[in-house]
């Protein structure tokens, strides 16, 4: 990339000029795969957080990622969402969207939504405002400054509110919600974005058993229409939703398969139980 195009890109990124034409295309899943991660390596201060990681997610799939602490799960999500740039490797969303050339908002617009490990809702905003912020639509400043939401977006928000059971909390400040409710709100925000691929980091941490059950139902219902990647420690939860599980260890894929296959894999047992 030469200096003038880099300058122009920088210009567009910051001033928002030409944002429409520049919007990345949605993931093209004509080959049945929505996410290609190939030979991704990331290192911090000599520590290899990801080490030649290769992973594919199929369109409509629900994939669980497990692995001990420091296996690189969060770093992998950071790479996919543009927060961290890898030292090597490639990351493609569908056939023709190179994730490594896009910024975080561009990746979000392209159709990848992310729920964080710690619930990060906007605590000063109401539940409704949180969803309004997240809802799919034109997110350029001139649009948000000039026009209110359209009726299609409003309907969609109502649907999401219902899905995550927060209808009667709509005007409450998000900071006053319980921990589980915050998790749900965040999932709701993810749904409002209408992404093709959902990255969900530890969705059931701090939830009551009933809430966990409903979350499992919700994620299962999403699969098919969307592709979902769930990172979770709770093995019961993983068992309840997983069709295919990937085990990460020291920055690369250790094993992949059904939950039973993975749990019986001696290498996985060794990693989890120690030598």
């Amino acid at each position: 990339m030469n200096a003038s195009t880099s300058l122009r890109n920088g210009w567009q990124k910051v001033f928002g000029a030409g944002a429409k034409s520049e919007r990345p295309p949605p993931g093209d899943t004509s080959h049945g795969t929505i996410l290609y991660l190939e030979d991704i390596s990331v290192s911090f201060d000599g520590f290899k957080a990801l080490n030649a990681l290769t992973l594919y997610i199929d369109a409509g799939e629900l994939r669980c990622i497990i692995g001990p602490n420091g296996a690189g799960k969060t770093t992998m999500m950071d790479v996919i969402t543009g927060k961290t740039r890898p030292d090597a490797g490639s990351a493609w969303f569908g056939q023709n969207t190179d994730l490594l050339t896009l910024t975080e908002p561009q990746i979000a617009e392209a159709g990848i939504g992310r729920k964080f490990q710690k619930p990060t809702v906007f605590e000063q905003h109401t539940v409704m405002e949180n969803l309004e912020l997240a809802v799919a639509g034109n997110k350029a400043i001139w649009s948000t400054l000039a026009s209110p939401l359209d009726s299609r977006q409003r309907t969609h928000i109502e649907e999401v509110l219902e899905t995550v059971c927060l209808q009667d909390r709509r005007d409450m400040r998000a900071g006053m919600l319980s921990h589980g409710q915050k998790q749900w709100l965040e999932i709701g925000m993810l749904l409002a974005q209408q992404p093709q691929l959902l990255l969900v980091d530890e969705p059931v941490a701090g939830m009551t058993p009933q809430e966990v059950e409903r979350t499992a139902e919700l994620l299962l219902s999403l699969a098919g229409k969307h592709s979902v990647m769930v990172v979770e420690h709770d093995m019961d939860f993983v068992r309840s939703i997983a069709r295919k599980v990937t085990v990460l260890h020291e920055g690369h894929v250790l094993a992949e398969g059904s939950i039973d296959e993975v749990q019986n894999d001696p290498r996985v047992v060794e990693v989890y139980l120690g030598e």
Binding site: E104, A108, K139, Q193
Partner: peptide, 16 residues
């Protein structure tokens, strides 16, 4: 309140 979160839901934070 949460700059990077805003980025992840698709807003060009810099531009705002």
């Amino acid at each position: 309140d949460a700059e990077s979160r805003t980025r992840f839901i698709g807003y060009r934070v810099e531009s705002y």
